[in-house]
Write a protein that binds this DNA or RNA. Structure first.
Lengths: 355, 355
DNA sequence: CTGAAAGCGCTAACAT
DNA sequence: ATGTTAGCGCTTTCAG
């Protein structure tokens, strides 16, 4: 039997809500037992468990995780820093992260950095003040200060959607340079020799393009055209891009886009102009988003397993939070897949004739 | 001058981090002054401000908002409950919410309900335990328990993306029934008489369709076809839908889709089959997503100002949190706009001839 | 403009 | 299996 409690919740500061003390009093147990019912029910005798749960039910008690977090120094909160919510390329990843974390009773604190390392730095400050148990970042490019802050806190960090030799902590992604390189090799091997690049100015897409161009250069080829749009990739930009490429139509042209959405726009404008794809233009996207297999013609692209990245990021974090510091450091390259569809199908009139 | 502090942070439970007490000691002030520097810098003398800020800088102090929230009973956290992150129709809204809240130093706690009222109910429980200062919900359909819990806490709630006579608290949205009705009237007025409905089984889209059909019925018309897909709207579904509609081609058909993505799929399959839109089929979407004006042919649709909903939801919440309980209850219908583009352009051969 | 004292509601640590 | 004690790190309240 617990000893009678001192009166509680009488000061003007209180929230007036039901607390563990009230529940404990009504159930005839000590507050810590209520806490155990909530957090470690296995450690409480069945009868006590039921009694406390009934009181919780009757009183409508809602636990205060803020107080719990302060006392236990664990928040069950994971901060997820995203560049934007409006670029669907990342949606699968964030959805997977939130879903898998929720299964383990962790919640997501969301931060939007707008693709800016400086804004991300501010965000990290804000977020750290809430003492998340873990942080998931999009990308591997951060300010030096961000890196130091994150490392000095010792909070588990997962970087995603990129590769680096020196991750802050854990890393689950793929190499954008490798994609550019392999994409170039792949298209060269198929016989394409004339290239145009259509991209937006997002940092990772830009690096894919640069890597693509470097690989072409190794084969003595320079792209005939490069167009960079601002902001998020949009169908409209792809359409505009194809219009500027029309004068290049004398010879078939391989149009390499930094996103499926841009590529879809190119295909749309081609359909509008009655231009045959892949006959007069071939088109390559990036992302293998859910529409890519169903455009007309179907879009060749680079498949990224966004949901897989999210699932693995969540899993790696949860593993660490379980206390498995003995587990090897996580630095996983999930890779990518070049997907050949109709938009790069070789026709009877081989492009290799332009060599 | 503050009196010398009792030793702090010596127990095994401490986080070993720098606390306000340490900062206060080094700056020669009381802890509460450090707190004021952080929260109400206007109330602190310039010299003190600078001195404390310097110590914060030197020590790398990171405030603990958990402790602050417990003491002040304010978390600066807003819970945002979304059905999914992978349906881009909502992206603008959530992006706007997070962005506008961040400007006011509020952060977003994210919850994914998967379109299920029951899952939302659990989520609300979890979320309430973190004592958010506000909650933003997607939709107005919740379990009775959810409604009661939310109302009994007294936390400001904003429901979005729908209308209801009895909002939990604040409401910023539009009527899906009204959309279905107006859409039918609009298309009937343009002369269309033969309709097919293509939709996914999301609850709000379904209600738009039902309302559309009711309005048609008032004019003695029943849709000739209705196809309901499962899951999120996808281009592939739109393509599949048009294939099943091909036998109906004898007379021109108005295909009403519950999402721009479905409609885009219909247009894609039409292009693939060499079918003239709007000649043989006319197509209507929903959402006016950023691609709708740039499909081929451009897509007639219903414009929803998703970003506006998000901005207003954030603003309404912030207004309430500023303590303006005197402000009138928020119940705003942001409306919608029927957008006529090429996919419903009337041709020389008027559809009205089929009457 | 600044400070002392007293909690906020919970749980770690240590009993029993 | 359950209880006692003592905080977690901050901010409210009340004083000066």
């Amino acid at each position: 039997m617990p000893k009678p409690q001192k009166p509680r919740n009488v000061s003007a500061r209180s929230t007036q809500g039901v607390t563990v003390f009230e529940v404990a009093r009504l159930a005839g147990v000590a507050p810590i037992t209520v806490s155990r019912v909530l957090n470690e029910p296995g450690k409480v005798k069945e009868a006590t468990l039921l009694r406390v749960r009934q009181v919780i039910e009757e009183t409508g008690y809602v636990r205060n995780q803020i107080a719990g977090s302060l006392a236990s120094n664990r928040t069950r909160l994971v901060a997820v820093i995203v560049p934007v919510l409006t670029n669907p390329i990342f949606s699968d990843t964030y959805q997977a992260i939130a879903t898998w974390l929720a299964k383990a009773d962790y919640q997501v604190l969301l931060g939007i950095s707008g693709y800016h390392a400086e804004q991300e730095e501010e965000l990290i400050d804000v977020v750290l003040s809430r003492r998340p148990d873990g942080i998931i970042l999009t990308g591997t490019i951060h300010t030096e200060l961000s890196r130091r802050r994150l490392q000095s806190t010792g909070i588990p960090v997962v970087e995603t959607w990129d590769m680096t030799e020196e991750p802050i902590d854990m890393l689950i992604g793929f190499s954008h340079e490798e994609i550019g390189r392999r994409e170039a090799q792949h298209l060269l091997a198929k016989g394409y020799r004339d290239f145009a690049i259509v991209e937006v100015d997002d940092p990772r897409g830009h690096r894919r393009s640069e890597s693509f161009i470097r690989e072409l250069a190794l084969h003595g080829i320079a792209p005939r055209h490069r167009q960079t749009f601002h902001g998020l990739p949009a169908l409209s930009q792809g359409r505009a891009a194809l219009l500027t490429l029309l004068p290049l139509r004398q010879r078939p042209l391989m149009i390499v886009c930094s996103s499926d959405t841009l590529a879809h726009g190119v295909l749309t404008e081609a359909a509008c102009q009655g231009i045959n794809v892949p006959g007069e233009f071939a088109v390559m996207g990036f992302g293998d988003m859910n529409f890519a297999a169903f455009t007309f013609p179907s879009l060749s692209t680079v498949r990224i397993d966004g949901a897989g990245i999210g699932r693995r990021a969540a899993a790696a974090l949860l593993e660490r939070l379980k206390g498995n510091t003995t587990s090897p450091p996580v630095m996983m390259d999930v890779g990518f897949t070049l997907v050949d569809r109709d938009s790069t199908a070789l026709l009877a009139n081989p492009w290799t004739s332009t060599e």
